[in-house]
């Protein structure tokens, strides 16, 4: 999976120690993962034009090499439905340190998962699957395996989660496309093997899964020294 463009993005990102979100999304879409429609804009006209193509509602996020944790600086605005709010967000972001643009993402819905990787000293790339939001933060409902993953690994990983019934449909909620979760995990584990010389840890959080597909809404790739 590791082609020239991916390599050059990773090499370029070394200066910051992590891969900026639009670059991370570019890597993922080059590898065949589904990402929301997105664009990066710096100026108001650009932002409006880009959003016309994506279609409201959108999410706006700060792009800055100085800001890893976007939510901590209120660098994420969700549910933007019109130009006025879009421009307000842009104005606010421009005042944040290291402003390099505003990422405009199509809104995605579904069951919120986290898919992650850690480059373990003893075991190499380890893959994590869990439920996003409070699932990961409070309940720590996650499962871990050593990459690369096969179908059996992925199946047992999903079943190990306490909230597994949320994937198969619980109390009338719609089931997610299990095959899409599986293929996303397997493909992700292959990518992590390919970039193991580069990365320290990766969070795809959230990955939104519905009855059709899994969409990677946010991606953070931390690089090693």
């Amino acid at each position: 999976m590791l082609n020239k463009e991916i390599k050059s993005i990773l090499d370029k990102s070394k200066q910051w120690g992590w891969v900026l979100e639009p670059d991370a999304k570019r890597i993922l879409s080059l590898c065949g993962f589904q990402t929301p429609k997105y664009a990066v804009a710096k100026e108001p006209e650009e932002a409006i034009a880009a959003t016309r193509k994506i279609g409201y509602p959108v999410v706006a996020k700060i792009v800055s090499p100085e800001i890893i944790h976007k939510s901590d600086v209120k660098g994420v605005v969700v549910g933007i439905k019109d130009d006025e709010r879009l421009l307000k967000a842009l104005e606010k972001f421009r005042k944040l340190p290291g402003f390099a643009g505003m990422l405009i993402d199509e809104m995605a819905a579904g069951v919120e998962l986290i898919i992650g990787a850690k480059n373990d000293l003893q075991f190499g790339p380890m893959i994590l699957l869990g439920f996003g939001g409070v699932g990961v933060e409070i309940y720590k409902d996650v499962s871990l395996r050593m990459a690369p993953l096969n179908k059996d690994h992925v199946e047992s990983m999903m079943k190990e989660l306490k909230a597994y019934p949320l994937l198969t449909g619980y109390r009338g909620s719609k089931p997610v496309n299990i095959a899409a979760v599986q293929s996303t995990l397997i493909r992700f584990s292959k990518l992590m093997m390919d970039i193991q010389d580069y990365f320290e840890s990766v969070d795809l959080n959230p990955v939104m899964c519905d009855g059709k597909s899994c969409t990677i809404v946010d991606a953070r790739i931390m690089l090693n020294d």
Binding site: W18, I68, I114, G116, A117, K118, D120, L121, Q122, F123, M126, L128, G130, V136, E137, K140, V142, S143, L144, R145, M146, H153, E200, S201, V202, D203, N205, R220, M222
Partner: peptide, 23 residues
């Protein structure tokens, strides 16, 4: 200091435990 959810949850022992059970 850990910079991601995954790094904080896939600690040394958690990874060890998962890798040996998987094999």
């Amino acid at each position: 200091a850990v910079s991601s959810h995954t790094a904080s949850m896939a600690g040394d022992y958690a990874s060890f435990k998962a890798a040996i059970a998987q094999h």
